[in-house]
Simulated assay, not measured.
Amino acid sequence: MIAQLVPVLLAFGANLGDRGETIQAAQRELARAAGIRNLRASPLRETIALTSAGPDPDAPRYLNGVATAETTLSPHALLDELQRIEAAHGRVRDVRWGARTLDIDIILYGGRVVRDDRLTVPHPRAHERDFVLSPWLALDPNAVLMGHGRVAELLARVGDTTLPLSDPAAASAAAHADPAAHAEERDAQR
C-alpha cells in the first residue's frame, strides 16, 4: 500500500542562540526525516519578539521562516517529529510565548482541519502574523491560507513589520541552503 503524500506548511522561529543556524539545521533534519519529502524553505525574516503582553522591542529579536513539504505522516506523528527536533535543539516549554531556541508550528496540513488538546490546524493565528505571512508570500506569491484567503491580501491587511535577515553570514548561509527560494528576496534588495 502506498501512503498518500499530504502537502504541509510549517513555520519556524527562534530568538535564542544562533537563530539562523538552528532553523536551518532543523530544516535539514526534517528534510531527512522518514515520511517527509520535498521540503522547500523560505527566506528568513527578522521580527520583534511577540510575548503574551504584546510586542517586546527589548527582548531578543526573532528569526522566522516557513517551509512547504509533503508528508506521509499523520498530523500527530508530524507534530511528534517537530517536537523531537525542537527538543534536540534545546527547546524548553516553561513559559507560553517565551523566548526559545526553536519553535516549529504546523500551519496547514493539506485541506484538513484538526482540533484537539494537542493540535489546532489550520494554525488559529497564522492569518494575523506577519512573521508567517511575509516569508510564505516570498516562497509562494499565490499562497492561500485555508479559511482566510490570499496571503498577499492578509499581509496587506495586517502590515509587514518583518525585515530581511540582517546578519550577512546567516544570509549567505541561507542563500546557499536553497538558492531558488532566495532569488526573489535578493532581487528585491537590489
Rank of each mutant, 00 (worst) to 15 (best):
N64R: 03
L16I: 09
H127N: 10
R40S: 11
D160P: 10
A49R: 02
Q24A: 09
P43T: 13
V92E: 14
G20R: 08
G98N: 08
A67L: 04
T22Q: 04
H89K: 02
G111P: 01
A53V: 03
M146T: 04
L165M: 06
L163F: 05
H148M: 04
R84F: 07
E21K: 09
A99V: 07
D187T: 06
H127W: 10
N142T: 11
W97Y: 10
A175I: 02
R112W: 04
H176Q: 08
P141R: 06
A169P: 12
I48G: 05
E184Q: 12
G54W: 04
H89M: 09
A174S: 15
E153R: 14
A171F: 15
E184I: 06
G65R: 02
I85S: 08
A99S: 13
Q24M: 14
E185P: 03
V132R: 00
T68A: 10
H89I: 05
P135L: 13
V114H: 04
T22W: 00
E21M: 10
S166M: 03
T120Y: 02
A143L: 05
A177T: 08
T22P: 01
E185V: 14
G110W: 10
L30Y: 00
I2Q: 13
A33I: 07
P55C: 02
G35Q: 02
V66P: 11
L154R: 02
D103V: 06
D178C: 14
D130S: 13
A99K: 00
P164T: 09
A14Y: 06
D103K: 04
L63C: 06
L137W: 03
R45M: 15
I36H: 01
L10T: 00
R40Q: 12
L30V: 00
Q27K: 09
A67V: 03
E29H: 04
R45T: 10
L78T: 00
G149F: 07
R186M: 11
T120M: 13
V144Y: 07
D140M: 00
